[in-house]
Amino acid sequence: MNAINNPTTQLLETALSSSMTRQNTISQNIANVDTPNYKAKKTVFSHQLNEAMSNQQLSAHRTDERHNHFGGTVNNDAAKVVERTNTTYNHNGNNVDIDQEMSELAKNQIYYNVLVDRMNGRFSSIQTVIGHGR
């Protein structure tokens, strides 16, 4: 078993990369809040996490229908960025909702920090096993 390049590490890498893409998308939306006819974009990447989880043959009891399903290959494709065209919030054709974007920015930052902490924990464990971390 490869301690560094394994499905869990690849999953974390994919999630970090997708979270960065989401951060960039939200930043673009915020930067264009006053641009006429700008349509807000949304990053979609939960499909990648579900595919990555399905390869690990995990199973879990779901207590809520909103919980992720466990159980599928690590997909290193980039996250999908889609345009939101079904709403118009401003008189100039722009559909960026700054409150929603700021909320999404905060949620994504928390998610990214959790992923970084988990990645650091994995590498700390490897370092301890090797004998360099006491």
Rank of each mutant, 00 (worst) to 15 (best):
N32V: 03
V33S: 08
P36N: 09
Y38E: 00
K39S: 02
K39L: 07
A40T: 02
K42G: 00
K42I: 03
V44L: 11
F45V: 01
S46I: 07
Q48L: 13
L49A: 08
L49N: 03
N50Y: 00
M53H: 00
S54K: 06
S54G: 12
Q57E: 04
L58A: 09
A60S: 11
H61P: 07
R62C: 04
R62W: 05
D64H: 08
E65C: 11
E65D: 14
R66Q: 07
R66E: 03
H67R: 07
H69Y: 11
H69F: 11
F70P: 08
G71H: 09
T73V: 13
T73R: 01
V74C: 01
V74T: 04
N76P: 02
D77T: 03
K80Y: 14
V81T: 12
V82K: 10
V82G: 06
E83L: 04
T85L: 14
T88S: 06
T88M: 12
Y89T: 06
N90H: 10
H91S: 09
H91D: 15
N92T: 06
N92E: 13
N95P: 00
N95Q: 07
V96K: 01
D99I: 10
Q100C: 09
Q100L: 15
E101N: 06
E101Q: 11
S103R: 14
S103M: 15
E104Y: 01
E104V: 03
L105H: 01
L105N: 03
N108Q: 09
Q109T: 14
I110P: 01
I110R: 06
I110A: 03
Y111V: 05
Y112H: 06
Y112N: 06
L115H: 02
V116E: 08
R118W: 06
M119R: 03
N120A: 15
G121P: 01
G121Q: 12
R122Q: 14
R122Y: 10
I126M: 05
V129T: 15
V129R: 13
V129K: 13
I130G: 00
